[in-house]
């Protein structure tokens, strides 16, 4: 899905937990997330901590979309 969208010229940030899969399928801007059932959260945190965590990941994704790249890049 990432590639079909990226093909049209729209940059895609792929947020996923299993980075090797994302690399294999060919995403270009890869943003690692927390866990499979809650990529952008962590139920053991307080609501505020959890939202801060999520904000950090989304901010990383936004930065990735602002960054020119020439090859597959994992944004840690």
């Amino acid at each position: 899905m990432v590639k079909e969208i990226e093909k049209t010229g729209i940059p895609v940030a792929h947020l996923c937990t299993i980075v090797p899969i994302s690399k294999t399928v060919g995403a270009n801007r890869i943003i690692p997330t927390i866990a499979i059932p809650y990529p952008l959260g962590n139920p053991s945190l307080t609501e505020k901590e959890e939202k801060d965590l999520r904000r950090g990941i989304v901010e990383n994704a936004i930065k990735a979309l602002e960054t020119e790249i020439t090859e597959q890049t994992v944004f840690q």
Partner: peptide
Amino acid sequence: NAKAFAAEIAQELISDGVDAVILTST
């Protein structure tokens, strides 16, 4: 299937003037 879905989605995104996509996977 995933390719076909995304190809349709991409066309809609373009006509709606979307500049970038955040795609999340579980």
